[in-house]
Computed example of a mutant assay.
Amino acid sequence: MWLITGASRGLGEAFARAALADGERVVATARHVEPLEALADQYPGRLVPLSMDVADRQGVFAAVEQAAAAFGRLDVVVNNAGAMLYGMVEEATEEQIRAHMDVNFFGAVWVSQAVLPHLRARGGGRLLQVTSMGSGGGMATVGYYGAGKAALDSVSEALAMEVEGFGVKVTIVQMGGYDTGLFTVGTTNTEPLARYQPLRTEMEAMWGDAVAPEPQTAAPVIMALAALPHPPRRLIVGSQSFEHVMEMDRAQADLYRSWEHLSRLAPG
C-alpha cells in the first residue's frame, strides 16, 4: 500500500497514477482532495483520497492512522508535499519564511515521524523523501526553497541510518525540474525590492522559457526505485539534472581545493 502526500497535482498525482496502474492500492493526501475524486472513481476501492495539511502535526498523525487503517498497512510512503517561496532572502517576511518551512521541512518531518511506527512494526517498508537536485547549494530567488530541501536532505540521511536496522529503507529522491505547477499555483512571491531588480531580471533570463518535462515521465523511476530490494540512500531523477548535480559537485570540490592551503592552517 502506498501513501503519497501532495497527490492532488504534479509529481504526487503522477506517482499515484503510476502506482494504481501497477495494481497498487494508494492513499493520496492533499489539503484539497476534490481534484482526486475523478481518479478515485476510476479506481474504486483502490484509491482513498484523504485531506491532510502537512503543516499541522496533530492532523498529520491522525491522517496517517486513517491511511494505515484504510488498507491495513503501509508499505511505500512518498513524502512529496511541497511549496515554493520565490524571492530574495532579504525580501521574505517572517510569516512567509515560517510558513514555507512548515510545509517543506517540518511537514515532511511530521509525516516521517507519523509513518515510522507503522513501517517499523511490519519490519520494513520504503520512505521516499522528495527533495531537489538543487538542494546541495543555494541560488538567488529560490534560497528558501533550497534551504528547506537541504534541511530535509540532512535529516533524511540521519533517519536512514537510524531506521535501517528495523528494515526500513529511506531514499532521498532529488527531483529535477518538472512541469508540476510549483512556480504557479504552488508559489508564494515576496514583495520585490527595487535594488534587486537587475539580479532578478538576470535570474529570470537564466530560467528562460525552456519547457520542463511532464511529471509522469518521472514516475517510472519512482516505481523502479520502490521495487529495489536494496535501494540507494540518494537518487537524482532526471538525465539533465544528473549532469547539473555532477557539475555542481565538481565546482564545489574545485573551490575547496583552491583554498586548501588556508583550511590546513588550522589543526582541527
Rank of each mutant, 00 (worst) to 15 (best):
E157T: 13
L119H: 04
T141C: 03
V76I: 13
A63R: 12
F71S: 15
M101K: 06
P229W: 08
E34Q: 07
T131H: 05
A121N: 13
A226D: 11
L50Q: 09
R25C: 11
G59K: 14
E202T: 03
V89Q: 08
A151E: 00
L3C: 07
L39E: 03
S112I: 01
L47Q: 03
A21M: 09
G138A: 10
V89N: 14
K169E: 13
H118Q: 04
A150F: 12
G268T: 13
Q96F: 10
A92I: 06
S112V: 03
G238N: 12
V109P: 06
Q96G: 02
G208L: 01
P215Y: 07
R120W: 15
L128F: 07
W259G: 14
V168S: 00
A227K: 13
F15I: 12
G59P: 09
E157P: 07
A30L: 06
L74S: 06
A92F: 01
E13W: 13
M246I: 08
S135L: 02
A38I: 09
G134A: 12
V170R: 00
L255M: 03
K149G: 02
F61Q: 13
Q197N: 00
R195K: 15
R57Q: 15
P232C: 12
V237W: 03
M246S: 10
P232V: 03
G176N: 06
L199V: 13
A83W: 14
A219M: 12
V155G: 10
Q96M: 05
A55N: 12
D209N: 13
E13A: 12
G12T: 12
V60M: 05
R126I: 03
T188Y: 00
E94F: 01
L128D: 02
V170P: 00
D22V: 07
R73N: 08
H244S: 09
A83I: 10
L85V: 03
Y144M: 11
P35I: 13
A218W: 04
D249P: 02
V78F: 01
A158V: 11
G123E: 07
E162Q: 09
Y196T: 07
G208F: 07
N79R: 05
G125K: 00
Q174R: 12
V109G: 05
I236N: 11
M223Q: 09
V89C: 12
G10E: 01
D102S: 02
T180N: 05
V89Y: 05
A68Y: 08
L182R: 14
T29Y: 08
S263Y: 12
A19S: 11
S135M: 06
R98C: 04
L159G: 02
T190F: 06
G59W: 11
G124P: 01
A83G: 11
S132G: 13
W110N: 09
D209M: 06
Q113S: 14
G12D: 08
G134W: 02
V109D: 07
L119M: 14
R233W: 15
D53I: 12
H244P: 04
G186L: 05
L36K: 05
D179C: 03
P229N: 03
A28Q: 00
G148I: 02
V77I: 09
E37V: 07
G177P: 04
E24K: 10
N189C: 15
L193N: 15
I97S: 00
G181Q: 14
E37H: 02
Y86Q: 15
M248C: 09
A140F: 10
S156M: 13
M203I: 01
E34M: 02
S239N: 15
L39R: 14
